[in-house]
Design a binder for these strands. Structure first.
Lengths: 269, 269
DNA sequence: TTAATAGTGTCTCTCAGACAATATGCG
DNA sequence: CGCATATTGTCTGAGAGACACTATTAA
């Protein structure tokens, strides 16, 4: 360890930074964002029609290359930062008002014809704010019902985005079982219990027990904090409005396969 | 769309591949592996002592740069492939006998002093096979008890590996609640129910109800398939040996905070 | 014999599922 | 009124938590 040829870490890094680098053999890194919302009760995903090669004319998740600056350790932007920037550029969403989390990274050979491109996918959930798609880019943006994706009804998808979307949908459907905060991120606060129930119905794609859902969601202490206001225009009695409390995890979780009714129609009606 | 300047995707890609590329401003991509096992009943993580700068002498997760070939789309290796290669090179594990899954990707500025380096972390679980650490590299490899990591007892960790390890530990502790297959991947098949219980005790760090665990794990249909053999040397009666069946998800899940006893000692004794 | 353990049985109490009932608002 | 809905209440059955018990093996 007392090697006379020993160099310090600072010396090593100086050598590393100024080394000869090939102009090939480097990969690129992108972020892709699966942005979900609920529009008119329909669980929907934002896609952008590509205006450039490759996959020109196909629909793709919003996203793009991560700015790595000049490659120095402290230069460029982080992954989360890239996501917020791309959201602003591609969808016009300056301040993202929902939930964002990393999904996973895709790096298979051949997933991008331009070269080796790693893509870190994110899942974003937000309420349906009436100033949606179509950002600074002239690119066409559109919300598609999740149920249509992957079917003949759905759009033609670029790259491996069909697989990413499938993973993202499953992440959302699974995680709202035990993360109540996720479901609430589809709504603007304050909201009513039936509104929250309709989030689950939209995401899971079927009716959810009405009275059981109400009792279950209210039984999680600290999850919903009542406000003094109510909301009319429900087609029934005024509904109390709640905001999110601190208790975020649902113990025990909602169970998708049990909360979902097999047949159409709430038995409660 | 009938632009006369329009080029085909093939033409575009040819231009893209042969473009001028800077020798700077590119990031690199690594994989890091949090390899867990249970040794003598202790939930443990494999770390490698770094023989080179940066962080020379510190302990780090096994891993390394992903081979991206010459940067062409089909050249190099995929992420999973890189993980298996690094496992072989750094730990001598040629055929990985456990469970492997992607954790998440870390890309913060400054996380690697050499430059912008994205790292996709993996979680690996395997039984304690008695031919462990110390691979082709002369590097020192060692299993550390997870409980010691992050304390003064634990090793000094390189890069942001302390944060990665914390995420990995929480992933394992959380996921074995509802993924029985994960817990079983710490064992060699066939195994007994008490052996499986000790996996939970090791990972969660406390005693688990003995009789309740037995009843619960047996009640999940298709999870454990009995063999005709038994195992002696248990300190008690011979225990039946089981192998994993098809039913992998535990519905409803084991609940860590309920299955774990608050105090030492199984009330069952 | 003693101690530790594998496996089973039993009681209780919580809670999810099922469904009824009541009150409210809209056309 | 008739209908859909919000919210509360009640009954029941499944199952988790708690704990006792038996059988078996090692020291």
């Amino acid at each position: 360890m007392s090697d006379p040829d020993e160099i310090t870490e600072a010396e090593y890094l100086e050598q590393y930074r100024t080394r000869e680098r090939p102009t090939y053999g480097r990969a690129e890194h992108t972020v892709d964002i699966a942005l979900f919302t609920i529009r008119q009760g329909v669980f929907s995903l934002l896609l952008i029609r590509r205006g450039n090669h490759p996959y020109k004319g196909y629909w793709a998740l919003p996203g793009g290359f991560v700015d790595v600056g000049d490659g120095e350790s402290e230069s460029g932007e982080g992954l989360d930062q890239a996501v917020y920037r791309e959201l602003a550029e591609e969808t016009g969403i300056k301040i993202f008002p929902g939930h964002l989390e990393q999904l996973r990274t895709y790096g298979d050979l051949g997933r991008d014809p331009r070269g080796r491109v790693f893509s870190t996918a994110y899942v974003a959930l937000m309420p349906d704010i009436p100033s949606p798609a179509g950002g600074d880019d002239a690119a066409e943006a559109h919300f598609f019902p999740v149920a249509d994706l992957g079917t003949d009804e759905g759009p033609a998808l670029a790259f491996d985005h069909a697989a990413i979307i499938a993973d993202a949908v499953e992440r959302v459907r699974g995680k709202i079982e035990y993360e109540g905060r996720l479901a609430a991120s589809f709504l603007t606060s304050p909201f009513t219990v039936p509104e929250l129930r309709r989030v689950y119905e939209a995401v899971w794609g079927g009716p959810v027990h009405r009275s059981d859902f109400h009792r279950k969601v209210m039984s999680v202490k600290g999850f919903l904090v009542p406000t003094l206001t109510t909301k009319a225009d429900t087609g029934g009695p005024e509904a109390r409005l709640y905001r999110l409390g601190e208790g975020t995890t649902l113990h025990p979780p909602f169970q998708r396969h049990k909360m979902l009714l097999d047949k159409q129609g709430d038995r409660d009606s």
